[in-house]
Design a protein around this nucleic acid. Sequence first.
DNA 1: TTGTATGCGTTATCAC
DNA 2: GTGATAACGCATACAA
Lengths: 341, 341
Amino acid sequence: MVDVAEAAGVSRTTASFVLNGREAGIPAETSQRVMRAAHRLGYHRNASALALATGRTNRFGVVLNDPERFLTRDTYCLNVLAGITAGALSHDRNLVLHSSHYPDWKSLYADILGGGADGTLLVGRSGDDELTHALLEARYPVVCVSYHVDHPRCLSVDCDNEAGAALAVQHLVELGHRRIVMCSGDYRNSWMLERLRGAQRAVQEAGLAPESLVQRDWGPGGWPTVEGMQNLAQFLVGADPRPTAAIIGDEATALLLVEYLPECGIQVPDDLAVVSFNSTEMSVRSRPPMTSVWQPLQEIAAAAVDMLVRHIDGEEPHEKIRRFPARLDIRESSGAVEQKV
Amino acid sequence: MVDVAEAAGVSRTTASFVLNGREAGIPAETSQRVMRAAHRLGYHRNASALALATGRTNRFGVVLNDPERFLTRDTYCLNVLAGITAGALSHDRNLVLHSSHYPDWKSLYADILGGGADGTLLVGRSGDDELTHALLEARYPVVCVSYHVDHPRCLSVDCDNEAGAALAVQHLVELGHRRIVMCSGDYRNSWMLERLRGAQRAVQEAGLAPESLVQRDWGPGGWPTVEGMQNLAQFLVGADPRPTAAIIGDEATALLLVEYLPECGIQVPDDLAVVSFNSTEMSVRSRPPMTSVWQPLQEIAAAAVDMLVRHIDGEEPHEKIRRFPARLDIRESSGAVEQKV
DNA sequence: TTGTATGCGTTATCAC
DNA sequence: GTGATAACGCATACAA
């Protein structure tokens, strides 16, 4: 910048003012000269120096969860990322994407704190996530996407999981199902618990016995895995009475299940109606197309960016957790039980 | 850091040495004291200050192309991103993801130059991309992924598009096809031209007339669009003689085409064999599953990171363009023409 | 209106 | 071995 100032024959301050658009009280002629010099010299402000001087980087971080899924198939991440990049641009911020492959949360923690961002978006982590708690304790600006943790400073954005699960159950009950298995896993995760609550409420409101809802988890870890999916299939094969419907919280796993079940002699939707969550491209392209609880992922992500930016700016949040409505996309995998009956 | 130094009762320099692991010639006792003080005070080095002092941010940027596709469906981006994040972590670098939604390339250009990264990965842009050329002209460190431009300083990583297209043609010719339509679009794009060359070579080597390869483009813009896809379908309906096979460079568009063609009375693969590129999850889940030219996207992306890091470090590259082999994944969409004949 | 001086947190070059 | 001191590039309060 000093070169620009020299070339334009002014002081650094003047150049700084012009370059920042604070041209109040600066002759248009001078301003022009500075601008031309800057352009001629190919000047671009040094982000690090600016960050050091102002204390703000105009960048925020993003931590995407679940490396394995992120690697290949899940369009959940893509949708969230699309919403985040759009939000970043609208706030004129850059985005630091942290790899999901860190060996442990502490190295990620150190990277975030020293990573040169003003705050970070945490996506889809678990309710007892140590990283989230540590960041919150350090008073580092954070917003949780698609989950929340039990901490007084926790800000988050999510869909209305409870209502979404209730929609799924209502749909299945209307189709005549009286025994629904729900694979939720680890109830330390906020969304899993919320979905369970929603399903239980819907069962109750339908006047059914609580036993109509069969709870299963994914096995060790509480996260959906191929083994967990296969275990579920085996359970279904041997179950007596066998559930006639299943609610699978994870879209990718639901897809695998629907492809795997025929090998076990279970047809979808004839023998088992399946409802998943997220309703992204994966559900549309599933065979058969999958009934799924849709949530506005891009809106959620963009809202999270808004919330984070406000938080960074020191604004008091209107609400600790912002909810977006869910919707049921009915497709073939939930079937028409009436025909069967 | 000055606080840490004070708390430990040493000078800034000593603290800096300890914190950077350059503990040569520093008493273990002093070192311990510094480390403990740092931990107690929750010290984390300021990335901006470090960047300003060293002239390196340890960050590199990524520009993903094609916002619309990125938004929703294409797993190409996911795979590339997975490779990049893995590469970033292995080099202990952070990654700045630039939104794909910039209003124009100049604002992106300014953002990259001022964005506080040491270099940037450009993914899948076109051969006459102004951004690439501008960055190259400014001597800003850049590596192109999945394309390259005609510039003496251009470094890039791509698959062997020519061989890949040749594989596709050979496969189709072996199945008996003698009239193959290839939808490539804008030949300013390196990979499109390479694929055309490969296809032409394979046609020639098979002893067929050049006319056996029918060239079509996607219409205005040269990029695959829904309209372009529908135009292609209409062309196929009216063509006489009608091609019996098609090579579609874009996986997502191939998917749409395969779903759309039956509405036009064309069955895949019976009336038309279809081969696409990339062979990601999309091709696997297509109906029918799609024969596709696979490329090691994650390896390519990781190699691009390597190349960029070396470039940033000032190393002379061994090769200006690094190629990875392609492979043909044969699935149902290319069909078994023998049965038809 | 424009120039001067100082600080941001760290590294690096020196003396001590 | 350790401690001052000068950059790094920019913003800003203050003086002129």
